[in-house]
């Protein structure tokens, strides 16, 4: 690898930042370069609808085992006791299973919403919730376009429940519990780049089995969870009207205006104050 433009700018930025803030962030560069976002590919053509993922998820995260029945055409959602839910959707291509869980967005709305960094996009990719920081304001729930975070409304010490892609397991070198338990190989864990390549390969090799779209590649600025399906994604209960650009970008204009207003408005007000003060004293002189 030569010293291309991107590398040059990166070096420049890191050097600038280091100069600006001193040595405290010296380690940032090597950390960021070492890791690529990881995610999971869900292939609904391979899903057996056995719900082994639901059961192992509940067991891993100390939640009650889901007892309700899976019926075709009856939507099941994630709840405050269930971080993932299998649905059996009746589509134009017959019955198709689909797994619902946190999408682990590249630029998550929930983490941008969180004022305490309790919702946190780890450098490995999973979006995790940190209870020691969360104040329970539920702004993440308002903001998430996929309606993933669930809140324990009936607890005096409520938690947010959502899939964390088994972050603790990933850190110790294992793969998420659901991906490990899946008997049909419907779940593949890997880096997002590899997974997109794999998904493209599957669509290319058997174009009759899939529609030519990877849900999650573009939606909401790209997500860590990627979906392959034989039927259009709106038939699987996904909101296909979601924007493809990132959700945090929606608040960018406002956030950028805040420092400008904070800095520019006071001197303006002071100037008006001084101006009107003089006016008045003149009037008084006339009287």
């Amino acid at each position: 690898m030569g010293f291309d433009r991107r590398n040059f700018f990166r070096t420049l930025c890191v050097a600038g930042a280091t100069l600006a803030v001193g040595n405290s962030f010296g380690a940032v560069k090597s950390d960021e370069e070492a890791v690529e976002f990881q995610g999971m590919l869900y292939d609904s053509t391979k899903c057996l609808g056995c719900r082994a993922c639901e059961r192992v998820c509940a067991k891993t995260h100390d939640l009650p085992e889901p007892k309700d029945e899976l019926k075709a055409g009856v939507p099941r959602n994630m709840t405050e006791t269930q971080r993932t839910a299998i649905n059996n959707c009746i589509t134009s291509k017959g019955e198709v299973f689909v797994k619902k869980q946190c999408m682990h967005c590249n630029e998550p709305a929930c983490t941008a919403a969180c004022l305490t960094q309790a919702m946190y996009k780890t450098k490995e990719g999973p979006v995790i919730w940190r209870g020691d920081k969360c104040m329970g304001c539920r702004y993440c729930m308002v903001s998430c376009p996929f309606d993933v975070p669930k809140f324990e409304f009936h607890s005096a010490n409520p938690k947010i429940q959502k899939c964390d892609l088994c972050y603790d397991r990933i850190k110790s070198g294992k793969i998420p519990a659901c991906a490990e338990a899946c008997p049909g190989d419907a779940l593949t864990f890997g880096t997002r780049r590899e997974l997109i390549a794999e998904a493209r390969k599957r669509i290319f090799e058997s174009p009759k089995d899939y529609i030519n779209q990877i849900f999650g590649e573009e939606v909401a600025g790209g997500t860590g969870l990627l979906y392959l399906s034989p039927a259009p994604f709106n038939e699987l209960g996904f909101n296909t009207k979601l924007q493809n650009s990132s959700y945090p970008a929606l608040t960018k204009g406002f956030l950028y205006s805040v420092p400008s207003v904070d800095v520019l408005l006071p001197p303006l007000l002071l100037a008006i104050y001084e101006a009107t003060k003089n006016n008045n004293s003149k009037e008084e002189d006339h009287e």
Binding site: L115, Q117, G131
Partner: peptide, 27 residues
């Protein structure tokens, strides 16, 4: 309305500044 009001000081003190949050600025 806060589920975990004992953490309400987090965005005010300490190292938990969610500076990209509109709610942080509003607070």
């Amino acid at each position: 309305d806060l589920g975990r009001p004992w953490n309400v000081v987090n965005p005010i003190i300490g190292n938990n500044f969610g500076a990209s949050s509109v709610l942080f600025l509003v607070a």
